[in-house]
Design a protein around this nucleic acid. Sequence first.
DNA 1: TTGCCCCTCCCCATTTTTGGGGAGTAGAAA
DNA 2: TTTCTACTCCCCAAAAATGGGGAGGGGCAA
Lengths: 240, 240
Amino acid sequence: MLVTLDNLESLLSALEQSDSLEGMQRVIEALRAHYGVAHLVYHWVDSRGDQYGCGTYSDAWRQKYLDETYLRIDPVVQGCYQRFHPVDWKRLDWSSKAAREFAKVAAEYGVGNQGFSIPIRGPNGQFALFTVNDTCDDRTWAGFTQSNRRDLILIAHYFNEKALEFEPARQPGQQQPLSPREVDAMTLIAVGYSRAQIADRLSISEHTLRVYIESARFKLGALNTTHAVARAMSRGLIVV
Amino acid sequence: MLVTLDNLESLLSALEQSDSLEGMQRVIEALRAHYGVAHLVYHWVDSRGDQYGCGTYSDAWRQKYLDETYLRIDPVVQGCYQRFHPVDWKRLDWSSKAAREFAKVAAEYGVGNQGFSIPIRGPNGQFALFTVNDTCDDRTWAGFTQSNRRDLILIAHYFNEKALEFEPARQPGQQQPLSPREVDAMTLIAVGYSRAQIADRLSISEHTLRVYIESARFKLGALNTTHAVARAMSRGLIVV
DNA sequence: TTGCCCCTCCCCATTTTTGGGGAGTAGAAA
DNA sequence: TTTCTACTCCCCAAAAATGGGGAGGGGCAA
């Protein structure tokens, strides 16, 4: 059951050489067979849906997931979004009614009872999950995840690296950077200060501050200040 | 020069068992000796400074870095912030005057000419760097980084996992969830709509909408709507 | 040198948001 | 069953943000 170093090497190499989503799909299927688990999934988590995902879930489940916007209630997504370390599905919060319903439907669509998901984050707020899923008892699963934790982290990392390659918009350079003063302004707005307070704190006039805000809004293509803050945050231009 | 699997295992285990920054510091020193490089550094990159860092740079350099707010001009930080994959310092943009000056000063403080940095991201926009630094020629360095790339990624991951453990504010939990309508409201605000537009889109009165926004603001402990959006985003309650 | 971007300051009027109050329905949890 | 939360609607006045204009000094790069 364990992946030997050689196996891992060859699989990662295959992944590195793949030049399309189809290539990633083949690698993930090979990995699934290798580990002998029910499912293996890499998916880019995004409000637009998992367009950059690949994995072994059925198309029906994938479609169902999108149709029902399960993204918003899936405890795996919610939980992983708050964590850095890989997490066993059992440790997530399944207490809400919606979550229990979700789990029931998932099972009907062939999702196994055990899961282990690794959150991965890229630049500009990119977020993805790499998930191993199977049906087995708790002890077997604990053994599996413990044995393969490190390999899985590495695999997740390589998958995300590949996925980012295929997403040109995520490549650096495209977006206009904010000037230091613009960053200051947006950051202070994001933490709740009013314009008057910020101007005072930055020791500039409120008018000057407005120029920064408007300039940032323009650079970010935002419709208003709140939108600009949201964009700056999701692009990783400011840290709150 | 290569880390064998056993060595890596024992070092990661030592890291897992450390329960303080001092423990991380000891591990990083052991790793540095092990790899035989000039410096090894993990540092949490933050507008407040690298309070959660550990590594082998001299105190003088660390202080200089903070005093001069090199964070804002350091091409390593800037470059890694835009990337997902580990990056060789040679591939970064050192063309600006400030960057060249920075490199000169760094060398004076004992920073080697070769560097390899791994960006790591956690929840809520957390961002850290794991850096290997040495003085040698390009070929030697290329060989070193290629051989150790995967191990270094894993080590970086484990260091960050540890650092997050020591930062209680980054732990999930204790926060009140938003109701579905509140999520709708906050999400639409975050993407730039005005209250009138949102009320129209959700087919509710603007007054009702206001109740949701205020309720969300209260739950999030936010000072105003923009602040609430920022908090909701950084807590992963809404996805934009 | 010239051009470009960043930083700084100021005016106006209009639109939007905010603060604080009250009240009824329905569905879910205890 | 009771209680609680979510959802929906309404008033008013004050505070804040927005839109769009103009203008000068400084630094850095081609």
